[in-house]
Design a protein around this nucleic acid. Structure first.
Lengths: 213, 213
DNA sequence: AATTTTATATGACAAATGTCATGTATCGAC
DNA sequence: GTCGATACATGACATTTGTCATATAAAATT
């Protein structure tokens, strides 16, 4: 028997979920809650095998609640439910160590998902998974401001990361080649890099995705 | 009732799988096969709801077989089994549209995985999923062979893409700096690039991921 | 054994790169 | 109006880079 706790803002949803989950003989819903803080409390109270939780709720996002639970119980199995792929959260949930992320519309799929999660698998809705590659790309945007990188410097970074030479960059931005060099020099200094190649590497590994390209 | 076909090189494995899957009352194994070509034939013959397939087999990789099946039946549900995370294949399988990728050691997890897949979810073993973020970065591997890029040249590409100077690369590979330059020169020529920075850009956008890093 | 390939190395050279000190014009603050 | 900041530019310099022609020894072919 798999013991679960269901958390959803909308009572109607959580009750339907309870019904669905308990319609088989494998799953029980120990209790249902409707907020992030309740999620934490109920996890402590029941120590469920699997916790099903809505991603977006009033007081706290499901992510935050999940983080708290996981920091106290690293082996907690949290399965997120979402109405319609809330893109932003998918990657976070994944990195956080959530065991799954599925659409709640998908009634039939939920019970099997719970039991797969119980057995150590991770489960993702088809649509969710499909978007994943693209979401994954977007790395954590690098905080240029924190490093005193000006607008113009950022433009230059982007062009360097496109493989342009100083001369080409100069032409593109209507600057003299010398000026471009000066900018570049200051960029390298600020980021503690040695040359344009390292800057390109930096761009593709640490930052990326903020602006164009 | 979920109809499945199981494909595994090792008869022992496929028979055990059959037993496990059929121990519940939800899944039947219509037939078992042991090669990529058989996979295709058996898919045609039974049109199973879910096909469980080993990743590495004699005649053909599970990936190839899967590709063929999916091109003929885009909605086929293929669930890959792997002995121990064969990293290289994970991303391919995912992009290809496989419904899951789980460890076969994980007996208990397999049946729930099959039923979750049947319901439209995608299922991944915990270990598999954990590696995913890092594997994802690595774009579709570039075909070095097609461009006459030698082993040594590839090593150099990787180091350039790490931001090392010629001198550093030379030290790393126990070559003279001049030799490194020569290699690099020939690489640039073969790939029609102009300088090391463009090579790094190339590495992060077009190829990447074949070797280390 | 003779020959070709392969892997490595050199040296010479031009171009690109990065650094630095300095110069000039504009613009806003005081 | 002066002062200081900002944005752009220069020139000089050392280094690094990329290209090319050539060399050598070992390994593979013949």
């Amino acid at each position: 028997m798999i013991k679960t706790v269901v958390i959803d803002d909308d009572k109607l949803v959580s009750l339907s979920l309870k019904t669905i989950l308990e319609s088989g003989s494998e799953i029980t819903v120990a209790e249902i809650g409707s907020s992030g803080s309740e999620a934490i409390a109920l996890y402590e109270k029941h120590a469920p095998d699997v916790m099903l939780m809505d991603i977006r709720m009033n007081d706290m996002t499901g992510i935050e609640a999940g983080e708290k639970i996981l920091s106290a119980h690293p082996d907690a199995r949290i399965l997120y439910l979402t109405t319609f792929s809330d893109d932003e959260y998918i990657v976070k949930a994944l990195n956080m160590g959530a065991k799954g992320y599925i659409l709640k519309q998908d009634f039939e799929g939920i019970a099997p998902a719970v039991s797969a999660v119980m057995r150590g698998q991770r489960v993702f809705g088809d649509e969710v998974m499909t978007r994943l590659p693209e979401l994954m790309q977007r790395k954590s945007a690098f905080d240029f401001a924190a490093h005193d990188i000006s607008e113009k410097e950022q433009e230059i970074i982007v062009l360097v990361a496109r493989g342009l030479s100083n001369k080409e960059i100069a032409a593109q931005l209507f600057l003299s080649e010398g000026t471009v060099r000066n900018y570049l020099s200051s960029i390298l200094d600020k980021l503690s890099l040695r040359d344009r190649t390292q800057l390109a590497v930096f761009y593709y590994t640490k930052c990326s995705g903020s602006a164009d390209f």
